[in-house]
Amino acid sequence: MTESRYIKAIAQALDEEMARDETVYIIGEDVGASGGAFGGTRGLLDKYGPLRVRDTPISEAAIMGLALGSAVKGLRPVVEIMFADFLPMCMDQIVNQIAKTRYMFGGQFHAPMVIRSPGGGGLNAGPQHSQSLEAWFAHVPGLKVVVPSTPYDAKGLLKSAIRDDDPVLFLENKALYAMKGDVPDGDYVLPIGKADIKRPGNDVTIVSLSRMVHQALAAAKILAERGIEAEVIDLRTVSPLDKETIFASVEKTSRLVVAHEAVKTAGIGAEISALVSEEMIDCLDGPVVRVGAPFAPVPFSLESDYLPGPADVVAAVEKVLAY
């Protein structure tokens, strides 16, 4: 175990996977000599050379399509898109091409590739550099969508994503890049599609993801002082969703809050709320309450007012408990 930053854990995962499998390569803007806009690929060009660490022009659609074509031919690209807000520049490649490759061609071709891209607010980066877009991609069959919240999770999940035979969108969080946590030095993987209980509790379930997990944990601490024990579930993966873990927790607590940083409207919270109401309404002692950002772009100057925090999660729990 070494204490490591989230971004460093990602760089470690990339390094280990490139050493393990010579078909793994990295492609993106500024990923080479400069080591990535946030340092995720630092040192890799020197170690693995320019054939496996590919700096590109600012051409997201070409990058994404190139990665797909190479994956079809047996390589395992890890694409870096500098900000998740830029994913729309290559939306066709992701949604119409990459996600459908296995299905549309009857299993003849597949696309074992990873798209790394950071989302989220907290850095005053403004409306076009702060979004949380996981729900868009969870809506697309064929993609897996991973949303790690800690350095440990980031490394283990990224290694799994690289070994996965399906395309994985790996949504990092810029505001977590500097976060420190214990990370094993050697090889380990965490399963994609499996949620993680970050804090056990019996009174209420709080399902969360990415940076919002930490807001949920902070809320749980406040609630504990009031004698309310919240169970905090970190989804780790939003597609496929780990229904089992969510349902098992709700069966125990009978109360559910879903908290995410993305706008509340049509977010992952809506999906989870619908699933629970469809399949286990009898278990619920109150409505499923969602916490999310207001239905507005992320405002530069009002970001801290805009982003949901622990107080919003506490208020949501109070609302459920009031029933």
């Binding site: 659609a61 070409a62 990058i63 994404m64 399509g65 190139l66 990665a67 797909l68 074509g69 190479s70 994956a71 079809v72 031919k73 047996g74 390589l75 690209p77 066709d92 490649q93 119409n96 091409q97 549309m104 061609f105 071709f109």
Partner: peptide, 21 residues
């Protein structure tokens, strides 16, 4: 490696099979 219903979408993918070579 595929016909395509999206005009212009094959070009980026063709870079990739070429790159794999």
């Amino acid at each position: 490696a595929g016909a395509n219903g999206i005009v212009g979408a094959g070009m980026p993918i063709s870079l990739g099979t070429a790159f794999a070579s």
